[in-house]
Simulated assay, not measured.
Amino acid sequence: MSEFTHFNKDGRANMVDISDKRETVRTAIAKTSVKVNSEIYKKITMQEMKKGDVLGVAQVAGIMAAKKTSDLIPMCHPIHLSGVDISFKWEKSHENYEVGITVQVKTIGSTGVEMEALTAAAATALTIYDMCKSVDKGMVIGPTYLVEKTGGKNGDYRR
């Protein structure tokens, strides 16, 4: 039998059975960023982007993505989320700007929410790109990474 957890006795993919796992409070924080030029920065911060409130729409997209993670990632369990919080922070370097995206996800359950936080971060960044691509397609997304997670039998993790 394989030591990999997402394979059955026949070596085929399966979703891990978590029915015997204890429910605990579980959190995850993920980060990513989108690097943009000064024109996009100005249009976002001055609410001048033709498609509307870029960060507001991106925030809603990220929350929706967290809730739909199990529809996108094959081996993820559907999870009842207790909360999703997305925040933004602008930084300037030379003539470019970078919007940092931080996502915090929380649940009480039998499995963690790392994938929900990472999926939300990615969808938030992709939405910013989508809403701004008419101005400049040269935006750069990432890196996207897990900052920390709490709860579960494997304990806490902090980058």
Results as ranks from 00 to 15, higher is better:
residue 101 I to F: 01
residue 104 Q to Y: 07
residue 118 L to G: 08
residue 42 K to A: 10
residue 113 V to I: 10
residue 46 M to S: 14
residue 122 A to Y: 04
residue 75 M to E: 01
residue 100 G to V: 05
residue 140 V to E: 11
residue 79 I to L: 15
residue 62 G to A: 09
residue 141 I to C: 09
residue 46 M to R: 09
residue 53 D to P: 00
residue 67 K to V: 00
residue 62 G to Q: 04
residue 71 D to L: 03
residue 141 I to T: 07
residue 90 W to S: 08
residue 103 V to L: 08
residue 126 L to N: 09
residue 88 F to E: 02
residue 71 D to S: 07
residue 103 V to S: 01
residue 63 I to Q: 05
residue 47 Q to V: 10
residue 139 M to C: 15
residue 106 K to Y: 06
residue 98 E to N: 07
residue 132 C to A: 10
residue 74 P to A: 14
residue 39 E to M: 15
residue 73 I to H: 04
residue 133 K to F: 13
residue 107 T to F: 06
residue 63 I to L: 13
residue 40 I to L: 06
residue 63 I to S: 10
residue 107 T to M: 11
residue 123 A to L: 06
residue 75 M to D: 00
residue 125 A to W: 05
residue 95 E to N: 15
residue 89 K to W: 08
residue 39 E to D: 12
residue 60 V to P: 00
residue 64 M to I: 03
residue 111 T to I: 02
residue 105 V to S: 05
residue 115 M to H: 05
residue 135 V to P: 00
residue 48 E to V: 01
residue 46 M to T: 10
residue 61 A to P: 02
residue 134 S to D: 11
residue 100 G to M: 07
residue 91 E to V: 15
residue 91 E to N: 06
residue 97 Y to T: 05
residue 141 I to E: 11
residue 72 L to N: 06
residue 118 L to D: 01
residue 47 Q to K: 13
residue 43 K to A: 15
residue 52 G to S: 09
residue 138 G to E: 12
residue 44 I to K: 12
residue 122 A to M: 02
residue 46 M to W: 02
residue 56 G to Q: 07
residue 81 L to P: 04
residue 88 F to A: 08
residue 88 F to R: 07
residue 127 T to M: 11
residue 82 S to L: 13
residue 129 Y to I: 01
residue 114 E to V: 07
residue 116 E to V: 06
residue 76 C to D: 02
residue 81 L to G: 09
residue 128 I to P: 09
residue 97 Y to C: 10
residue 89 K to Q: 15
residue 114 E to G: 05
residue 74 P to Y: 03
residue 71 D to R: 01
residue 38 S to N: 14
residue 40 I to T: 09
residue 86 I to Y: 10
residue 98 E to D: 05
residue 130 D to R: 01
residue 40 I to Y: 15
residue 123 A to D: 01
residue 44 I to N: 12
residue 106 K to P: 09
residue 119 T to Q: 06
residue 51 K to Y: 06
residue 136 D to G: 11
residue 130 D to P: 04
residue 138 G to N: 15
residue 50 K to W: 07
residue 130 D to E: 12
residue 41 Y to G: 07
residue 103 V to F: 08
residue 117 A to G: 03
residue 68 K to M: 08
residue 85 D to S: 12
residue 100 G to N: 13
residue 53 D to T: 09
residue 41 Y to L: 06
residue 111 T to N: 06
residue 78 P to S: 04
residue 108 I to L: 14
residue 95 E to H: 13
residue 107 T to G: 03
residue 105 V to F: 04
residue 119 T to H: 02
residue 92 K to H: 05
residue 136 D to F: 01
residue 95 E to R: 14
residue 92 K to V: 04
residue 98 E to V: 12
residue 133 K to G: 03
residue 123 A to T: 05
residue 102 T to V: 13
residue 107 T to L: 13
residue 73 I to N: 02
residue 70 S to K: 00
residue 82 S to N: 14
residue 50 K to Q: 13
residue 88 F to T: 00
residue 111 T to F: 02
residue 48 E to R: 12
residue 41 Y to R: 08
residue 41 Y to C: 11
residue 106 K to H: 13
residue 52 G to L: 14
residue 89 K to L: 14
residue 135 V to L: 15
residue 103 V to R: 04
residue 104 Q to A: 08
residue 53 D to G: 05
